[in-house]
Design a protein around this nucleic acid. Structure first.
Length: 574
RNA sequence: GCGCUCGUAGCUCAGCUGGAUAGAGCACUAGACUACGAAUCUAGGGGUCGGGAGUUCGAAUCUUCCCGAGCGCGCCA
């Protein structure tokens, strides 16, 4: 029970007692009430908007209502003073030592501090990466991988039961192209000169696949017709490439719980099942779509096709399910995939996509709503582009020529820790600049370093003296400097941050929190340079030293807890 | 033409799902190393939150219309 929850509960009780005394109506809705740290220190230790969000239901002026709450809050033992301010805020000053005692919870919980029960064991499925099995992961995939994995850790920390999933698009024409491209490289492995036609995958990485094919099959595939070799080469190539992808993910610290296959889905009849479900609701029909407004595609011709009534669920147009050759569209199998996934999950699904798939969100949500019969079962998080720079200069890459910067290249250059942290230093829907030179710099400008350094600094104090490791019985009321109290408030906000970030599906908040916490700690540290009385170790005051070491230990605990959520190691020394 | 994601200090970005006088870093100016790690810190200037209108006690946040950027737009995944 932290001070925010405690105060929240007290206010809820007061609401009930006011209602019981007939001063306000029964059954007030407090869902919008918050207890928070005010930005401005002159607004007290805690602030609540309870009077403003309930004034309408109570049919009272906010300030009058606030007065009712304030009178009863003032009699709480942990509260020193209560003040009504502005349009009806209630500002609370806590009794001496209340903030300081919050540290005990950190000390007792260790890196579990901040764990929340809001998830209540509910299932959540986070699907991310899901890169096509036609080539190695490149740098842009890293953002989705790290975002998704950190979100999964965050949700677990907040009490959800999380499944990490990778959807392999191993059906459709592109994997056939992969097979043909690999076959050429196979012939090349026998010394034949090859020419790679347009539309094939030109990347050098397929040379390895060609070589592996040669080793596995000898020359037995050479004489075969395309019809005969295609399925064999296709499965082989997919397996090879997926092995590489998995290895990259391991290096990045990402481990999936499930790899699910599009091909398996189609062959097992899941598509028919899902579409049957839609047909049963009269949501599938044969019809003709209007051509898109504006520029008409060159090869446009009017055509009757099988359509899903996505417009009934807020999409702009109905969406096709079948290609003209009778096979399913990608959308059809994706409906089946989400239908299957939803049945397995029995809870909320989160998809992490690249921003270029943004146009697909409405139809997928429509499909999930139609198949599940529920709203809000799918949240799609879009990750914007990453531009790779080296000292301000763009790193050149060309997808057409098959040369791109692979995830593995970037990790060779900067390491997994840097990669993971930097990818969360922007909100997911904001483009991100990733500069090799900057992210490896050892300075304030490099946030990974800055946070790691704060942790290492905190640990370094403990290396000064064996005796200061005994601080469990410290008198925390001795932490009374403004810089110390400010730092304590920040530490104590950690659980609320976790809950907010988990609710919003926003793991980047962890990174920003850690940067702020590091700044507060560096600030206190240097406070001790300006004023020696603030130094952690006071040789003539064992009790003060003890209290401060308790605080320093809490700082390193919360930093390492946050870094742990991002799968980053908290260094003892740098 | 339509849809999605955005637009916050000179630059790069936060802003706790509607709260009080919008915050950091970089850059600029002026300071702090006989010191638990100066790889750090302190202070200062810098804003019509792209623009207009609306919703209400209260808007960077919600609605709507413009302006601008990126992405997407019937059988590719």
């Amino acid at each position: 029970m932290n001070i925010f929850n405690q105060t929240h509960n007290v206010i809820t009780q007061i609401n009930k007692s006011l209602a019981a005394d007939g001063l306000i109506p029964e059954g007030g809705d407090l869902s919008k009430m918050v207890v928070e740290l005010p930005r401005d220190l002159s607004h007290g230790d805690l602030s609540t908007n309870v009077a403003m969000v309930t004034s309408k239901q109570a049919a009272m002026k906010p300030r009058d209502l606030a007065q009712l709450y304030a009178d009863r809050l003032a009699s709480e033992s942990f509260i020193d003073a209560v003040e009504i301010a502005g349009p009806g805020f209630i500002n609370i000053n806590l009794a001496d030592g209340v903030w300081q005692n919050q540290l005990v919870a950190i000390q007792e919980a260790g890196t579990d501090y901040g764990k929340s029960a809001i998830g209540a064991g509910q299932n959540v499925n986070v699907e991310f990466v899901s890169a096509n099995p036609t080539g190695p992961l490149h740098a842009a995939h890293a953002r989705g991988a790290i975002f998704g994995d950190s979100l999964a850790h965050l949700l677990e920390f907040a009490g959800f039961d999380v499944t990490r999933e990778y959807y392999i698009n191993d059906a459709g024409t592109q994997v056939d192209v992969l097979a043909r491209s690999s076959y050429l490289r196979y012939l090349e492995a026998f010394g034949e000169t090859i020419e790679i036609p347009a539309g094939f995958y030109p990347g050098d990485y397929l040379k390895d696949v060609g070589q592996a094919l040669k080793e596995a099959f000898g020359d037995s595939l050479k004489a075969q017709s395309e019809e005969a070799y295609l399925p064999v080469v296709r499965d082989f190539a997919i397996e090879q490439i997926m092995a590489g992808i998995k290895a990259d993910l391991v290096r990045l610290g990402v481990s999936m719980d499930i790899y699910s296959s599009e091909r398996a889905l189609t062959t097992s009849g899941k598509v028919d099942e899902a579409l049957g479900h839609l047909k049963g609701q009269n949501l599938v029909y044969r019809g003709v779509l209007e051509p898109p407004k504006g520029q008409l595609p060159d090869d446009w011709e009017e055509r009757e096709q099988l359509l899903f009534k996505a417009t009934e669920f807020g999409d702009d147009v109905d969406r096709p399910l079948q290609k003209s050759d009778g096979t399913w569209t990608y959308f059809a199998s994706d409906i089946a995939y989400h239908y299957d996934k939803w049945q397995r999950t029995n809870g909320v699904m989160i998809d992490v996509w690249g921003a270029d798939h943004g146009g697909y969100v409405k139809r997928m949500k429509a499909a999930v709503q139609a198949t599940s019969g529920q709203n809000n079962q799918l949240d799609v998080k879009l990750c914007q582009l990453v531009s790779l720079l080296d000292n301000g200069q763009p790193v050149k890459m060309s997808k057409r020529a098959g040369t791109f910067v692979t995830l593995s290249d970037v990790m060779d250059a900067v390491g997994a820790d840097v990669m993971r942290f930097i990818m969360l230093t922007r909100r997911n829907d904001q483009t991100l600049e990733f500069d090799y030179a900057k992210v490896t710099e050892k300075s304030r400008e490099n946030p990974v370093f800055y946070v790691q350094y704060a942790h290492a600094r905190a640990r370094s104090v403990f290396r000064q003296d064996e005796a200061i490791h005994e601080f469990a019985d410290a008198d925390l009321s001795l932490l009374r400097d403004d810089l110390e109290v400010r730092l304590i408030k920040q530490l104590v906000s950690w659980p609320s941050l976790i809950e907010a970030a988990a609710k919003m599906h926003e793991p980047h908040r962890i990174a920003f929190y850690l940067m702020d916490l590091a700044a507060a700690f560096h600030g206190l540290w240097n406070g001790g340079r300006d004023n020696p009385d603030l130094k952690f170790i006071q040789n003539d005051k064992a009790d003060v030293t003890k209290a401060r070491m308790y605080l320093v230990n809490c700082v390193s605990t919360v930093i390492s807890s946050g870094l742990k959520l991002l799968s980053i190691n908290a260094a003892e020394e740098m």
